[in-house]
C-alpha cells in the first residue's frame, strides 16, 4: 500500500458517498445516469468475485464489500425507490456497446485465460468506459449540478491517483500491470475535459455548463 493508492481509494469512496448522499437527501436521481451505476455494479461484481477465493487484507475485503454494497444501493435508489425522478430521456447511452467490446477484448487480451482472470480483465476494461453514459448525459442536459460535478471530480481523481500508484510501484517494486495501466490511462483521459471545466468553472462557483 502507498499514499497514492490510499488517497485514490479514499477519493473513490468519497465519490460513492457523495452520490449516495445526494440521491438520498434530495430524494431524487435527476441528472444521474442509472446506466453508469449499473456498469459500476457490474465492474465491482466481476472484479470482486475473488472475495470468496483469496484474502488480501482486512482493508481490501472491507473496501470490496463497501463498493459492492454502495453500488447496488445506488442502483436500488435510482431504479426502485426514486424511479419517478429517473431521467429516462437523457440517460440513453447504449451500454451494450461498452459491455460487449470489453468482454471481447478481455477474451483476447488478458494475463491468463481462466474464468476469474478474464472476468477481472473485463472489469478493468469496462471500468475505463463506465462513466461515459454519465458524461454523455451531462453533455445532453448541457449542465450538471455542482454536487454531481464534485462526484465526477472525486471519481476521476481516484484512477488518476492510481496511475501515480502504478508509477510508484514500478519505481519501488518493479511491479506493473499493463492491462490495468492502459485502461486506467484511458479512464482518466476521458475525464480530462470535465476536469478542465471543473477547475475553471465549478471551483469559481459557476455552474458546470458543457457545450451541448
Amino acid at each position: 500500500m502507498n499514499i497514492f493508492r490510499l488517497t485514490g481509494d479514499l477519493a473513490h469512496l468519497i465519490a460513492i458517498i457523495i452520490l449516495l448522499h445526494k440521491i438520498w437527501k434530495s430524494r431524487s436521481c435527476a441528472g444521474i445516469s442509472g446506466k453508469s451505476q449499473v456498469l459500476f455494479a457490474l465492474v465491482y461484481t466481476t472484479r470482486y468475485l475473488d472475495l470468496v477465493t483469496s484474502y488480501v487484507s482486512i482493508y481490501n475485503t472491507f473496501m470490496k464489500f463497501v463498493f459492492l454494497a454502495t453500488s447496488y444501493a445506488t442502483i436500488y435508489l435510482i431504479y426502485v425507490k426514486f424511479k419517478a425522478t429517473y431521467d429516462h430521456n437523457h440517460d440513453t447511452f447504449r451500454i451494450e456497446f461498452l459491455i460487449l467490446p470489453s468482454l471481447a477484448l478481455a477474451l483476447l487480451i488478458n494475463h491468463y485465460f481462466n474464468f476469474l482472470e478474464v472476468l477481472w480483465t473485463f472489469s478493468i476494461y469496462l471500468e475505463s468506459v463506465a462513466i461515459l453514459p454519465q458524461l454523455f448525459m451531462v453533455s445532453k442536459t448541457g449542465e450538471a449540478e455542482s454536487i454531481t460535478s464534485h462526484y465526477l471530480f472525486a471519481l476521476g481523481s481516484y484512477r488518476a491517483l492510481y496511475i501515480l500508484n502504478w508509477i510508484y510501484r514500478y519505481a519501488t517494486e518493479g511491479h506493473y500491470d499493463l492491462i490495468a495501466i492502459v485502461a486506467g490511462v484511458v479512464q482518466t483521459v476521458l475525464y480530462c475535459d470535465f476536469f478542465y471545466l471543473y477547475i475553471t468553472k465549478v471551483l469559481k462557483g459557476k455552474k458546470l455548463q458543457l457545450p451541448a
Binding site: 492510481y162 500508484n165 511491479h175 492491462i179
Partner: peptide, 10 residues
C-alpha cells in the same frame, strides 16, 4: 511481471 499480485489492488 504480470497480473497476479495486482489483485491486491481494488
Amino acid at each position: 511481471d504480470t497480473g497476479t499480485d495486482t489483485k491486491d489492488e481494488l
